[in-house]
Amino acid sequence: MDPVRNPYAPGAGTPPPELAGRGQILLDARTALRRVQGGRAERSVILVGLRGVGKTVLLVKIKEIADDLGFKAAFIEAQENRSLASLIIPMLRSILLTVDFSERARDVSKRALRVLKSFIGSVKISTGDIDYGLTINPEVGVADSGDLQADLSDLMVAVGEAAKAAEKAICVLIDELQYVNEVEFSALIMAIHRVNQLNLPIIVVGAGLPQILAHAGSAKSYAERLFRFPQIGALEPTDAVAALSNPAVEEGVEYDADALEEILKTTERYPYFIQQWGHDSWNHAKGTTISLDDVREATKRALATLDESFFKVRFDRCTPAERRYMRALAELGPGPHRSGDIAEALGTKSTSVAPVRSKLISKGMIYSPQHGDTAFTVPLFDAYMRRIIPTFDVISTDGT
């Protein structure tokens, strides 16, 4: 069929043509935003799920909702080797400089900018010698202690007070939250706690891999009272069918029942893979019906595409020792698996490979669903590991 008319959208964070199965999450997000906007208490939100379930797509959609409601909304993506402060500073600067403050609110907004200037000075080591374009004098004695937990709280309170004076609400959206280290995450939690205590109009909506749950608990014991943690998983069968069929029907195309069943089975109903298989099935089909043969041929194309991009970029970030650990995990089949079983497959003890496991968790490659268990954060990655490293033998006795 005509590839120009192909309705599917495989890609990182690319909105699908049919956002199926996520209606309740978006409805809950809209309710939370409206409560904050109305001056009511509301918990912030962290979407939790594996790679490929559409967390980033949902964050983008929630930002659109916030924008439509009149929020000052800003989207940032946490990064492995970059401090949270270096991401937050330009975002808050932009918010404070673009809000239309009334005459009575300008003193509050100027104070918030001075507090931001103080904060910049206090975190200069982690942000580098960057000129953020603020020529205003700092607010002496506020957000300048050098203690990130205290200073970030001071800053968020000042920004929240400015937003309240301007009769505006702020939504901060943070993707890839698992890359925020424990000290920074603890500071963020404390800042949200303080903002909530003062009933200021700021809400944080984040997204992260499953390890963010343990990360939050380690950072602050009261994190579960400040956040809701909606679990984002594979689609239900009816939603997966809708994600495939509805965009095709709008273009006058339909799927054979066995073709749909094959895609759902092969993709395990993960949204990213559904888009990839739909895209490749469409491009292979010759008529207006997508058949089982079309899907089987599309599987070859889809796996080749994923192996060259989605999977490969993650594999390439790992050291030889980390790759051997992942290959041992893949050898055991679909997870999760006990850490001791993985070590046994490597011919060593769990304590010997613990540093490798820890690094892979930090890189977002694996996570621990429960104590002592290990699983891939990327669906279907075990099969990829078996394709890229076809044979597995005990390579070493020390896991390195």
Rank of each mutant, 00 (worst) to 15 (best):
P90I: 09
V123G: 02
F185A: 03
A383I: 13
A285F: 02
Q24E: 14
A328W: 05
K349W: 13
T127K: 04
N81W: 11
D316I: 13
F71H: 04
A219V: 08
I95Q: 06
R111K: 09
V123A: 02
F310N: 03
S352Y: 14
A32C: 02
F71T: 04
G141A: 07
F376Q: 04
L260R: 00
G38S: 12
I125T: 12
P230E: 03
D100F: 02
V57I: 11
P334R: 14
L188H: 06
E64I: 00
R104D: 15
R51Y: 13
V115E: 02
H215M: 13
G160W: 05
A41W: 14
Y222P: 00
N283A: 12
V378C: 09
F227W: 11
P3T: 07
R114V: 00
P10Q: 05
K124I: 11
P369S: 07
A321H: 13
P15W: 06
L235R: 09
N181C: 09
G146I: 01
L84G: 11
I290K: 01
H215Y: 08
Q79T: 12
L87F: 05
N6I: 05
P247T: 08
M190S: 15
I89P: 12
E254R: 07
A242C: 00
R43S: 12
L209K: 05
E262F: 00
E77N: 07
D154Q: 04
V142I: 15
C171A: 15
Q211G: 10
K349F: 14
M156I: 06
A29V: 01
A216P: 07
G13L: 08
E103D: 13
G233N: 12
D239C: 01
R30W: 00
E297A: 12
I366A: 13
Q149F: 00
K164Y: 07
G38R: 05
A187N: 09
T288F: 07
V205Y: 04
C318S: 14
L332Y: 10
R111I: 01
I212H: 03
L84M: 15
G364A: 11
D341F: 10
G287R: 03
W277F: 15
L303N: 14
F75L: 09
K72A: 14
R93S: 14
A298N: 06
E18T: 08
M156A: 14
R225N: 10
D100G: 05
P210Q: 11
A9N: 15
A243N: 05
R269D: 03
E251A: 06
L87Q: 15
R43Q: 14
R51K: 09
N137M: 03
A73Y: 01
A158P: 09
P379N: 03
I389W: 10
C171M: 14
M156S: 08
D307G: 15
E103V: 13
T348V: 09
R386T: 11
I46G: 00
L155H: 11
A66Y: 01
G23L: 00
D28K: 08
A166W: 09
I25N: 01
G208M: 06
L332V: 10
D382P: 07
R5I: 01
G278N: 10
F381T: 08
G121M: 07
P10C: 06
A12E: 13
C171R: 04
S86R: 13
A112Q: 04
D398C: 03
A259K: 00
I95G: 08
S126Q: 12
I388H: 11
Q275D: 13
Y132Q: 04
A257Q: 07
L264E: 12
A298H: 05
V183E: 15
K220V: 12
D398H: 09
G21A: 04
G54K: 09
A219F: 06
A12Q: 08
